[in-house]
Design a protein around this nucleic acid. Structure first.
Length: 735
DNA sequence: ACCTGCAT
């Protein structure tokens, strides 16, 4: 489909280069004598270097025609004039135009060899001390290391950015480390397919039955399954999957597994009737979580004396009267060390949490609010009238590029000072984060966990919230009564139906829940555009800004990428008076609906009344107000706050006419249009449908195939993650 | 064969 062309020439000059990701803008002098502006990932590109590029011509709204690189074959400068322009450009630390000229005059086309292999010869030149010669050689060598790494990766068609990541992790020795063990590319940190890593290993002559290969495969399987939410794998499944991956016998895998267990990289333990194999870090986290929760439960001092009276006063003060379950929640928070509070949208979780906050304040408890995502934390803070932060920030999390390790300042050695911690959106907390939080709680600290267990689960491994609920060991208040919506709402009824595994009613006579059958994704997309552009605003009186299109996937005709393209074209078409700015594959236009895609605590915003603040959060949706003619900045209106983005922050925003159901978790809209089409099996799950339905306050239109709706309703597989926490809390082997 | 969180 995509048409690519090639371009060959010598780098004339570098206009821009980002040393972190290799993104480069340069002028290429082609063999036809033309100068072409070229952009792409070309780390340490330098003048004089020859390139054979594959890519295509594009028109940039500000910078005009340019060649966008997809693939590059590169060769170091070889001719004297190429070497001269390379060295004169400042590409090597310690070499300027004058030294460059002297070097090339003296060593000719051998110059680069001399620098790399015999730098002591450089001292023959005027003004070059041996110290400086060594520095020059060092700078050149580290560049060559990166270039060789890139070449190596390119041979296996791996993305060039990987070179930057490997260099950050292993420095100058990255290529040696990689040659030693190519399997470190597989899975997790670098995200390379096992088969690709395996192919590299084979080409390097690593034998198929070498221990390092089989062990790597076992760890890859465990890691890969952890990505899918499993805390452990049953031994037989692990062995079977690994043997299939390697096309080898089970005995070999068993031997490797034994070795890994001996080194404690893998822990095997009986969980109920399953022989469970854990990655070490997940095992430690699960055991710690169990023990610490038990400690918190036993340390709980009932401070319930006089609680009724306190609650009465809070009701008076807040001008409300609690429903029985809400009252029970507030009361139990005072009596129990650990409390679980569950409920779907509209069941009054927030009211209860505000009550608990008020109660803790009156009890003199130093209380901290936290949530697993930035936006959930922001919302929690606003609703409770006090500061809330991400759990990660609360614990002082940091991430080291060089080791790839996550660490927390707060922990057993330096615990949080709080007497009570309240966590919202618990369904999104995974096991590793839970363990990190528990490590930072002082014994006796109260812990209140709030959430909707039917929502989409955490990204990481574990089923923490539902394990805690189903363990039966922890006081739980389930809020069921729905206050927000009338019981006759089909949205609510259908949400419940889906939750119980029954098909939602798709018969269209129910006021707020409609189904439009479109078996073909192309027609699904067309119908969605028509709904959003004309039918809903004109026939149902819903303004476009109050409609959100949701879809399970990014891919395909009815995925976010295409829907955003067609919705942008329909709702905010190109106009002479609307400026545009492109960023990579994306095109932004004044008036576009966009979304912040990562927490940024530094974005500056201003309200019309002059209030100034900072911080936008992953999932915040706004509208592009103005694009600066030079393309240096743009302003976005988020709900009355006007935020200014600089060019380098553009990677943090994306079009938001359509977004994935996952992204919408935690938000609500007056009207939701859901694209219900077949997508990858992992996405055709009940939680996706339930979450999509419950995002709609007043109106929900499902467009698509009822078979897809049926598949999602039936499939509760995502709830079934291998995890031992529930079993351990129930008493484990003692039971 | 695909979705996603956080951190400097």
């Amino acid at each position: 489909m995509e048409e690519y062309s090639t371009l060959e020439g010598t780098v004339h000059s570098i206009i821009f280069q980002n040393p972190d990701n290799g993104y480069t803008v340069l002028r290429l002098l082609t063999d036809e004598g033309e100068v072409v502006n070229t952009v792409g990932c070309l780390p340490c590109a330098a003048p004089g270097e020859r390139m054979l590029l594959t890519g295509r011509m594009e028109v940039h709204p500000q910078h005009g025609e340019q060649f966008s690189v997809r693939d590059a074959e590169r060769r170091m400068p070889a001719e004297e004039d190429e070497i001269l322009s390379y060295l004169s450009s400042g590409a090597i630390k310690g070499v300027g135009p004058a030294t460059a000229a002297r070097m090339v005059e003296r060593f000719g086309s051998e110059t680069l060899d001399v620098i790399e292999r015999a730098p002591e010869k450089l001292t023959q030149l005027k003004g070059v001390t041996s110290k400086r010669a060594m520095e020059i050689a060092q700078s050149f060598r580290s560049q060559m290391e990166l270039r060789r790494l890139m070449e190596f990766l390119a041979r296996f068609e791996l993305p060039i950015v990987l070179a930057m990541l490997l260099e950050k992790r292993y420095g100058g020795t990255a290529l040696d480390v990689l040659r030693e063990n190519p399997y470190l590319l597989a899975g997790g940190t670098f995200g390379v397919e096992f088969s690709t890593a395996d192919e590299i290993a084979i080409s390097l002559g690593i034998p198929a039955d070498s221990a390092c290969r089989v062990e790597a495969a076992v760890l890859f399987e465990l890691d890969h399954n952890a990505d899918n939410g499993h805390v452990f794998l049953p031994r037989e499944k692990l062995i079977d999957a690994t043997a299939r991956l390697l096309e080898c016998g089970c005995e070999q895998v068993e031997r490797a597994l034994d070795d890994l267990m001996e080194r404690c990289a893998v822990v095997q333990e009986q969980v109920a009737n399953v022989t469970a194999c854990y990655l070490r870090r997940l095992y430690d986290a699960e055991r710690y979580a169990q023990r610490k929760i038990e400690l918190l439960l036993s340390a709980a001092a009932d401070q319930g004396g006089g609680v009724e009276e306190l609650i009465g006063r809070i009701e008076e003060e807040q001008g409300i009267s609690y429903a029985p379950a809400q009252r029970q929640a507030v009361e139990l928070a005072a009596r129990q060390g650990v409390l679980l509070l569950t409920g779907g949208p509209g069941t009054g979780k927030t009211t209860s949490v505000r009550g608990i906050v008020a109660l803790f304040r009156r009890m003199g408890l130093d209380t901290v609010l936290a949530a697993p995502t930035g936006r959930a934390a922001k919302r929690m803070g606003e609703l409770c009238g006090m500061e809330a932060q991400t759990i990660h920030r609360l614990l002082g999390m940091s991430f080291s590029e060089s080791t790839g390790e996550v660490s927390f300042i707060k922990g057993e050695k330096e615990p949080l000072e709080a007497d009570a911690v309240i966590v919202d959106e618990m369904s999104m907390v995974d096991l590793m984060l839970m363990a990190a939080l528990l490590r930072a709680l002082r014994p006796g600290c109260r812990l209140v966990m709030v959430g909707d267990p039917d929502q989409l689960s955490a990204v990481g491994a574990g089923n923490v919230f539902s394990d805690l609920i189903r363990s039966g060991r922890i006081a739980t208040v389930a809020l069921r009564e729905i206050f927000r919506q009338a019981e006759r709402s089909a949205i609510v009824r259908n949400a419940h139906a889906v939750n119980e595994g029954r098909l939602p009613a798709l018969d269209n006579d129910q006021g707020d829940f409609f189904f439009l059958r479109r078996r073909d994704p192309v027609r699904t997309a067309a119908t969605i555009v028509e709904l959003v552009q004309t039918r809903l605003p004109e026939k149902m009186g819903v303004p476009v800004e109050q409609i959100q299109v949701l879809t399970p996937t990014h891919k395909g005709e009815a995925g976010t990428v295409n829907l955003n393209r067609v919705l942008q074209a329909a709702l905010n078409p190109r106009r002479p008076d609307r400026r545009e700015r492109s960023w990579g594959e994306r095109l932004f236009r004044e008036g576009d609906r966009i979304m912040q895609t990562k927490n940024d605590y530094d974005v500056v915003w201003e309200k019309p009344d002059g209030t100034v603040g900072t911080g936008m959060f992953n999932g915040d949706v706004g509208r592009i107000e103005q694009i600066d003619p030079s393309g240096e900045w743009l302003t976005v209106n988020f709900d009355d706050r006007l935020a200014t983005y600089t060019a380098d922050q553009l990677s943090e925003i994306d079009l938001a006419y359509a977004m994935t159901v996952h992204k919408a978790q935690g938000s609500e809209y007056r009207c939701v249009v859901l694209s219900a089409v077949n997508a990858a099996p992992a996405l055709m799950v009940r939680g996706v449908l339930y979450t999509a339905i419950t995002r709609a306050r007043e109106l929900l239109i499902v467009v698509g195939d009822e078979a897809a709706v049926g598949r999602m309703t039936e499939n509760d597989r995502q709830q079934k993650r291998y995890s031992g926490l529930k079993w351990r809390l129930r008493g484990g082997e003692r039971a």
